[in-house]
Nucleic acid binder design. Structure first.
Lengths: 147, 147
DNA sequence: TTCATTGCAAAGCGTTTGCAGTCAC
DNA sequence: GTGACTGCAAACGCTTTGCAATGAA
């Protein structure tokens, strides 16, 4: 699907969410959504903010933080905590849930393993709980082939 | 095993590590190790620091942070990032690796599932990498039985 | 008109750093 | 005696908050 078509869909989704929750449809919110869906991969607030400023779109970081919270609430963005200090985000509407393998070299490999779902189901049954989210991270490095 | 016997063992382990790496055997380092191994469960730096101050042991937070880094390096302590903002720690010498299920109610349930190891092995083979660590967190809440 | 939202700057909070003084070796 | 380590306070980096001005409804 083209970026433009994707945006048309998520834009509608945001409108629906804002209306349903009595929130205002401000231009900043749509601009931030557009910026996020124009790119791919993971980003942090700094990068998103810089990218918009570079395009001469005047936003404040406070608004970026605030808007991302809304986008997470309506399922258009996912948040990750790869390293300890800062949050990373990615658009989530057209991708299915996946986990990450982080390499020391900087590369991020996404994967999806059905066994996670099995572990989750078992934990739910064993502990009488309802699990609504999980985070699985593997940390590794490229293998030295001649060793 | 008694707390005292446990401490005697990890104390030796720390001494070995400090000597092997040309680091000094300062009283603060042993005091912090002792404080950690006197308790069980997860703790953050604030709690550890407060606990030592309450016992009239004079330490600085800088030293606590510095020492924990050493204890992690020699395998006596593990670090977790349960929530976004702050790190939690736990003693690790006598426990095997395990993962966590965090409940909204505040409870932390530890579990261990062999399938994680299988996923890890598969990822290593598929991507030609060596995985040295992982973090798996499930987030849930107690189930409402009459629903 | 009204009040949710914005931008800005200041505050918060866990963690790290700089540095003079201390103490393990 | 020497330099690794300590305590203290200031700096840091990301995020949140307070507040006056703005603009969506």
């Amino acid at each position: 699907m083209k970026k433009k078509d994707e945006y048309r869909i998520v834009e509608k989704e945001l409108t629906r969410f804002l209306q349903a929750n009595g929130l205002r449809k401000t231009p900043e919110r749509y601009a931030i959504l557009k910026e996020i869906y124009c790119h791919h991969g993971h980003f942090n607030v700094e990068a998103l903010y810089d990218s918009m400023i570079r395009k001469k779109y005047r936003v404040s970081k406070a608004t970026v933080y605030n808007t991302i919270e809304i986008l997470i609430a309506c399922g258009l963005v996912r948040r990750h905590h790869f390293d300890e200090s800062q949050a990373y985000y990615e658009k989530s509407y057209f991708d299915s849930q996946h986990d990450h393998l982080l390499l020391d070299e900087g590369e991020v490999i996404e994967f999806c393993d059905p066994r996670i779902e099995l572990i989750k189901k078992e934990l739910e049954k064993t502990n009488g709980v309802e699990i609504y989210r999980h985070s699985l991270l593997f940390y590794g490095r490229k293998k030295n082939n001649h060793s």
